[in-house]
């Protein structure tokens, strides 16, 4: 790559060839969102309309009773509350745990940090299948089985494995001088962490918070095993179990799907920038 800046005289590609590519990409994009559209259309049809027109007809009007029925039948409000509680607690606790770990590794430069970091990376790739039975067994012995707390504890640790790995790299490049200066001014390690390192790294911590929330929201295997009573189940588990039982008719399936999709779309719209930017950060480091 030469350092000489060439005059930017880029030859224009033929106009004719431009639109087919755009159209092809747009068709692809449409295919990706089509399932969402079909679900939304069918969730607002009445059963009679559905059996008359099939899944591809447009609804005559808004029929919201299917959604309401489903909401009440599965006590969806409770499931939403459980998901918010679990994902929210995990997000906050896992960020705190990641910060503590990464502070010791990235800024404290503790001895053997390469090994400690390697441990967290491997813990992060470990399949949950290799933990699920002992976790299930131990939580029964500890009286934590079928409690939201058990899921919060497990996912705090699992998410913190990734958080530590990412944050240790970020904090490893934290300007040393700031930390040293504060230490010399008499701040102890604890004060340096909360008054300097955390405020300066706030953008990265925000990304992690969002990630942990969405990831925990979407988790399936461990919550499926740990949360068996209806009152404790998350949205993912409740919908997955319902689907697995094959008891839902078409209208109910679509109501379930729409109610499951909506929070995801809300996250997506709210966090889209953070998510896409954050993934880029996570991937390259």
């Amino acid at each position: 790559m030469s350092a000489v800046r060439r005059p930017a005289g880029r030859p224009r590609s033929a106009v004719l060839s431009r639109y087919p590519v755009l159209v092809a990409l747009a068709v692809g994009a449409l295919f990706m969102v089509l399932p969402f559209l079909i679900v939304a259309v069918n969730a607002v049809k009445s059963p009679a309309e559905y059996s008359a027109g099939g899944p591809l007809s447009l609804p005559d009007g808004l029929y919201l009773d299917g959604l309401k029925d489903f909401w009440e039948r599965v006590d969806f409000g409770q499931k939403l509350l459980n998901s918010v509680l679990i994902s929210g607690s995990v997000a906050v606790l896992a960020v705190v745990l990641s910060v503590l770990n990464a502070y010791a590794i990235g800024i404290g430069r503790i001895r053997g940090r390469a090994w400690v970091l390697a441990f967290f990376v491997l813990a992060n790739t470990l399949p949950q299948e290799a933990l699920v039975y002992p976790v299930y067994h131990l939580s029964k012995e500890a009286g934590l089985y079928d409690t939201r707390l058990s899921v919060v504890i497990v996912f705090t640790v699992i998410q913190a494995a990734f958080g530590t790995y990412l944050l240790a790299a970020v904090l490893g490049r934290f300007p040393r001088e700031i930390v040293d200066a504060a230490r010399i001014d008499g701040a102890n390690a604890w004060q340096v962490l909360w008054r300097i390192v955390v405020p300066v790294s706030r953008p990265t911590l925000g990304v992690l918070l969002v990630f942990f929330f969405v990831w925990t929201w979407n988790e399936f295997l461990l919550p499926l095993v740990m949360l068996i009573s209806n009152d404790n189940q998350t949205v993912s588990v409740a919908l997955g179990v319902l689907q697995g039982q094959r008891l839902m008719d078409a209208t109910m399936t679509n109501a379930a799907a729409l109610l499951g999709v909506l929070p995801a779309i809300v996250f997506f719209l709210v966090f889209q920038r953070t998510l896409t930017r954050g993934i880029a950060v996570g991937a390259v480091k």
């Binding site: 949205v235 689907q243 995801a264």
Partner: peptide, 9 residues
């Protein structure tokens, strides 16, 4: 961003 359970449904 969709939970896999919902994608499955």
């Amino acid at each position: 961003v969709l939970p896999i359970a919902v994608a499955g449904i």
